[in-house]
Design a protein around this nucleic acid. Structure first.
Lengths: 221, 221
DNA sequence: TAGATTGTTAATCGATTAACAATC
DNA sequence: TAGATTGTTAATCGATTAACAATC
């Protein structure tokens, strides 16, 4: 009965990560006037395997593709949007209006993926009552109460590491069910709360390491 | 002879991503005065499998662990630092000093993972010649030449989508071998250049979708 | 019809986890 | 010694890719 941890709504996280890529690609095709498209074509353009494309599509599409023709671009876009929750926006709050917090508040990409950051909180009085990316920055004292009243279930933590656990506790007290954590600390939360850690440094470190290995090979002693 | 694509320097990318986590954890333990530590202990604290911990350690450690005792914390830290290139810093440039660019320029976490962003470029004359996070913002015209002269091999793209390909071309012309791309576009590069795409929206979208599925289960019709 | 494309079942591949002998 | 822990080989698990019959 229990769904496996790495599955979300019947599809794997890997597939879920590719869905917005298809959506973006299909939007472009649709704008160009393309009405139908085949899996091999999508796979070629996005550098994916065509079977993978078909399986991904099968997991979200309501209508089947047609042999020899492919899929209706408009239908695919609609199905992707419904699946990704475009018309069912989840609201989120952000805590910590530093550089990273401001970057996220100003980022235009979230809403098209079914998430809207509705307000921010910061402990710095100078930031409170200003607007960033069109969103109000409010004092920490209002966090718990506002999250509850607005029935908000997603919290984004962009505060320094030493403040993160306390912020997290306040979010959980406010009813938040999922936390996107940019602070480089392990957060302790109740079982019903999901924490997703984001470590910007790791991605760049991996890239750097890769480069170092390549260079080592090219410049033998 | 050819190393598999998903392997970097003999270890998988997954392992590579965990190494900084071990490093951060061990630094904390070392600061507390812990001299030796076992794989089961690390696994417990970091919520990993103990065999995985042992394999990860085996892939970077110079000295073996001792049965019944575990590993010398200081040695492990040293080995991790050497492997991650702490003492062998790769330099990077960033293009696009918007909110996200400024967040990355001010982020303190990169240098401890062997990467240093040494300067930024922006097409906006008002930003040129200012300093962000202690790093100079320079005009685009200087990008290619400076990358070449300073022998810089990593470029970070935080410009709007429509400018990204041109920026990427300039970086490649300047000798960059690895590109960390935050713009939501597919970049075309020569074979010897590695592009790593970062899509902030995908992570949050996945979290949101997960939450939506959980809620659907809890509130049946 | 012929053949391109779909959808699905089977094979492969990589990463994680389990099992277990070696050893301090 | 007894037993905790290491290092490694085997089993499992998930995701990707290949093979192929169905079909428009």
């Amino acid at each position: 009965m229990e769904e496996k941890k790495h599955m979300v709504g019947g599809i794997s996280r890997k597939t879920l990560e590719r869905l917005p890529v298809y959506h973006h690609y299909l939007e472009g095709k649709f704008a160009e006037g393309t009405e139908t498209i085949s899996a091999p074509m999508i796979a070629l353009d996005l550098k994916l395997n065509e079977v993978q494309v078909r399986k991904d599509i099968a997991s979200v599409a309501k209508t089947a593709g047609k042999p020899k023709t492919g899929y209706a671009v408009k239908d695919l876009i609609d199905d992707l949007e419904e699946f990704l929750g475009y018309h069912n926006v989840n609201q989120a709050v952000l805590v910590g209006a530093g550089y990273l917090g401001r970057a996220l508040l100003s980022y235009k990409g979230f809403e098209q993926y079914g998430v809207e950051i509705v307000m921010a909180f910061d402990s710095d009085g100078r930031k409170v009552d200003t607007k960033i990316g069109g969103k109000m920055v409010l004092p920490m004292a209002k966090l718990e109460n506002l999250c509850q009243r607005m029935n908000i279930h997603i919290g984004i933590i962009t505060v320094p590491a030493k403040a993160a656990q306390e912020v997290c506790d306040q979010l959980v007290a406010g009813g938040v069910r999922a936390v996107w954590n940019f602070a480089p600390v392990h957060l302790n939360v109740p079982d019903h709360v999901l924490v997703q850690n984001e470590n910007m440094a790791v991605s760049l470190a991996a890239l750097s390491k890769y480069l170092y290995e390549v260079q080592k090979k090219e410049e033998p002693i």
